[in-house]
Design a binder for these strands. Structure first.
Lengths: 145, 145
DNA sequence: CTCTCTGCAAAGCATTTGCACATTG
DNA sequence: CAATGTGCAAATGCTTTGCAGAGAG
């Protein structure tokens, strides 16, 4: 069953079933945001109360395995999940913890060079920039952590 | 009191006291490794049994505030602490979770450009490369996470 | 003597997991 | 119906914190 409005994007072609919970998690991420598991739970529960956080985590892990979503971790805050997009990096505001995607294609060359020099294979890489966003720029200084 | 062999490197010039626990944490990090709080505790306890993990975390937080150590977090593993060195980045082995420091000076320019374009100020940045280290290259594949 | 620091143990968060029941194909 | 998925709640791993006593200036 795959009705109008249902989100699939490849789940049903994997060895996993397309359940309504999984479709709802994909739906929650479909607008391109970077959401924590808790935030995804909130969105999913709007249309489907009773879903548990455990299911959200299990679903996200499956979706990551299939390649439909990516997980990003930053010190001090819960992991953020995004639907898989073109390779990009992140800027995290040190004050409000908001997150923005940025492109930086030249990083790929650097990462590959470094990895090769050190003898690493099968590499992935990510650049995280932490700084004060323009909206927070007027605020008094708060220490990074 | 600051005897021969004691590690200080600036703590006593801060508003914090140089206690033997704090000196021991600095000592544990003096060989340039990237240690978890637990690993630091082990090293410290060799010469000073009875030190608690809470003290290690509190000490590391102070040392970070003063600028003597840096904290780095990676998804799925406990945070690693290093004594402050020249700007560098990390390569994490996806199999054995070993961590290596690498230089990549050109990343700084990219990060500054990106941050400026997006309107961020007071930036810091870090490139994390995840890959299979040469020692693990012979092993069967294990999924990244 | 006062302020800072420490050990201990409990609490806090994010995430994972065991189990019995529900759902899917 | 057999396999997979889910809710619930407990467990886990890492880190933080309140408190009462110890140590430093």
């Amino acid at each position: 069953m795959l009705q109008a409005g249902t989100v699939d994007h490849g789940l049903s072609q994997s060895r996993y079933r397309l359940t309504k919970q999984r479709a709802a998690v994909l739906q929650a991420l479909s607008d391109g945001g970077h959401l924590s598991a808790e935030a995804i739970l909130e969105r999913v529960r709007l249309h489907m109360p009773g879903v548990s956080l455990g299911t959200i985590y299990r679903t996200l892990d499956i979706l990551r395995e299939i390649g439909l979503v990516q997980i990003f971790t930053f010190g001090g805050i819960a992991a953020r999940y995004e639907k898989t997009l073109d390779k990009h990096h992140h800027v995290l505001c040190s004050v409000c913890r908001s997150l923005v995607n940025v492109r930086a294609d030249s990083v790929a060359d650097i990462a590959r060079d470094v990895a090769e020099r050190e003898g690493y294979t099968d590499i992935d890489f990510s650049l995280t920039i932490v700084g004060r966003c323009s909206a927070c720029a007027a605020q008094p200084a708060i220490a990074l952590r």
